[in-house]
Design a protein around this nucleic acid. Structure first.
Length: 302
DNA sequence: CACTTGACCTGTCCGC
DNA sequence: TGCGGACAGGTCAAGT
């Protein structure tokens, strides 16, 4: 489910909700969702204060005062939803649609974290729910200093939105995969981090590149355009609060609106925005459902 | 080595 | 209404 813009939207939400709160308890009823839940929990988790919430690729990092961090990957259907038990702290109250997630925990809740906050002698209670219908996601407790050393982090390519990730660096990383098709390379987290199926398709449409094009057949101009369009679409999606197809919600349990701005993703059968006489098609590339306009994204020569 | 396929899970949708 | 199969936004291990 969540790609870089969705995880970033959750991070922004949690950044305004969690820092300063203390972990009171943590319960997990699906072992694989939190495989090291039993180790170190009491010493480094219970009582610890949340310092900050950061993101690398599609992974969220909740940094604690104990020098440990909760490292969370939501995979396809994961959600992190915050609920205050006190109306004075309830986030999103007054939002017209309110939370789109019902009473929690529900049958997809895998981990529940209870939090407390002390303000001027008063104690406020809240909970953070890790829901994950398909159980692919995971949460781990790791020493903060070691987070970036785990295999998953070591394999990641650069952040596409980081200020020092240049057009030249982008081109060079892709050109190393000369015989790979461009869609597979975009999805490969070791080439660049954070792109998934939605924004791969959207950035390729914006760049007028067919997803099956081999990188060796892409001119410098196309790669430079892809760099610009990929960053533009990721920024737009963050601004729109991400894409909600079915499961994705932000930290307040609300959906993102990017999909109503999408040009190809989930728009098969609808007219292309550039060529209203041509319908968006759904094909298969790199083993994934892939959306294209057959007119502006030409099939590469065999 | 580079690329493809199946596995991890649950739920939904579509055709019969 | 039931049942089988395909498919879903991610990643990893195992296969070719």
């Amino acid at each position: 489910m969540p790609e870089l813009p969705e995880v970033e939207t959750i991070r922004i939400g949690l950044s305004s909700l969690l820092p300063g709160k203390h972990i009171k308890s943590i319960t997990s009823d699906w072992e694989k969702s939190f495989p090291n839940a039993q180790q170190d929990v009491h010493q480094f988790l219970i009582g610890a204060r949340v310092v900050r919430v950061t993101r690398r690729a599609k992974v969220l990092l909740i940094e604690l005062s104990s020098k440990y961090s909760l490292v969370i990957h939501l995979k396809m259907t994961g959600q992190l939803v915050f609920r205050s038990s006190d109306d004075r702290l309830r986030f999103g109250a007054g939002h017209p649609s309110g939370s789109l997630v019902g009473e929690l925990p529900d049958k997809s809740t895998r981990v529940t974290i209870e939090l407390t906050e002390y303000v001027k002698g008063e104690t406020f209670h809240s909970k953070l729910f890790f829901n994950d219908q398909r159980k692919f996601g995971w949460m781990r407790l790791l020493p903060t200093a070691e987070v970036m050393n785990i295999d998953f982090m070591q394999r990641l390519g650069p952040e596409p939105l980081s200020a020092d990730f240049t057009q030249a660096a982008f081109r060079a990383r892709f050109q190393r995969r000369a015989n790979t098709n461009i869609k597979a390379a975009l999805l490969d987290q070791s080439v660049i981090a954070g792109v998934g199926n939605i924004y791969a398709d959207e950035s390729l449409w914006r760049s007028r590149i067919h997803p099956a094009t081999l990188i060796k057949n892409l001119s410098r101009t196309y790669l430079d355009t892809l760099y610009v369009e990929l960053r533009a679409v990721l920024n737009l999606a963050i601004e729109k609060g991400g894409s909600s197809d079915r499961d994705y919600v932000n930290a307040e349990g609300q959906k993102g609106s990017y999909l109503s701005f999408a040009k190809v993703f989930r728009r098969n059968g609808q007219p292309c925005h550039r060529h209203p006489d041509t319908l968006i098609q759904k094909i298969r590339v790199a083993g994934r459902g892939t959306h294209i306009c057959p007119k502006c994204q030409k099939e590469p020569e065999k």
